Amino acid sequence: MKRQERLHYKFQNLQEKNMSFEQVFKRILKFMSLNPRGNYRLMVGTDSQVHARCTVFITGIVIQNTGKGAWACIRKIMVPRKMLHLHERISLETTLTEEIVSMFTDSKKNKMIDIVLPYVYQGATFSIEGHIDIGSGQRNKTREYVQEMVTRLETMGVEPKIKPDAFVASSYANKYTKKVGG
């Protein structure tokens, strides 16, 4: 994806619409700066839902200060066809997550780390996770794709999480996939 195309990404949450990635990043820094001694998890995950005439993909970005709240937003993509093949959908979900994770450049990651760094010896932490809406359970249809998708995120230096720990994809993003409009 070209850099200028990324600049046109639009994110939203219940308070704000049409945020650029730079605006999202500023909100994350502001949230972390409110309590630099926090235990922060930056989590990105995507879920999808097949509708009658399209497939909706929602990527969630969540910055959580464990036990003390979170700030979150979503990005919505609509593919104008029914994507019925599970591997294709899961692969695109992972690609969309990777795309957003890659926007957190080393420079951006360092700005987030710099907020907590002075307080590391007082317990402050920061981690980045990629949430994949797949599970390894025997009854889970997605189990055969777990290793492939986990490896993709690991190669980006992101800690992969699958069900039941992938709540940004399986819960937060999931609730926004149900509607086609908006």
Rank of each mutant, 00 (worst) to 15 (best):
Q15S: 11
P118L: 08
V168T: 13
Q15I: 06
E98V: 00
N174G: 08
G157R: 15
F57S: 06
S33Y: 03
D165L: 12
L117M: 14
E16Y: 11
T46F: 01
T105P: 02
Q138Y: 03
R152W: 05
G67N: 14
S20W: 00
R3D: 14
Y9F: 13
G130D: 13
A52D: 09
I113N: 06
V50C: 14
S136C: 10
I63H: 03
K175C: 10
K30M: 12
T151L: 09
V62G: 00
T55N: 03
K26A: 05
F25P: 01
F25W: 04
S170H: 13
Q138D: 04
S107C: 08
A166Y: 02
L29F: 06
G130P: 12
V150Q: 15
M32A: 12
K30R: 15
K109T: 04
L84R: 15
V101P: 00
S102I: 05
P164S: 14
I134Q: 07
Q122H: 10
T155V: 15
R143C: 14
R41P: 00
R81M: 11
M1F: 07
T95H: 12
F11R: 08
Q12T: 00
Q138S: 03
H85R: 13
S127E: 10
E88Y: 02
A52N: 07
R81G: 03
G135I: 03
R53L: 07
I58H: 09
G123R: 00
I132K: 12
Y119F: 13
G123P: 01
F21M: 08
K76H: 06
T55F: 00
A70E: 12
V116S: 02
I100W: 06
D47T: 01
E16M: 07
F25L: 06
P164C: 06
P80Y: 15
R41I: 03
M83I: 13
L86C: 04
M78Y: 02
F126E: 02
W71H: 13
Y145G: 06
A166P: 00
M83S: 09
S102H: 06
L42E: 05
R89W: 06
H131L: 07
T46S: 10
C73S: 10
T142C: 10
E159F: 07
S33R: 09
T155N: 15
S48K: 04
Y172S: 02
A70C: 01
E154N: 13
G157S: 12
S20H: 01
L7P: 01
R139T: 12
H51P: 02
F167H: 13
V79R: 08
T66G: 00
F126R: 06
Q147I: 02
Q64I: 01
H8Y: 11
G130C: 13
R53M: 09
Q138N: 04
I134S: 11
M19T: 06
P160E: 12
K30F: 15
K82N: 14
I100K: 10
M149N: 05
I132N: 09
I61Q: 03
V120T: 15
V50W: 08
M19I: 03
E148F: 04
S170W: 05
V50G: 07
A52V: 06
S91D: 09
Q147V: 04
Q15C: 14
T94K: 10
V101G: 01
Q64H: 01
F104E: 03
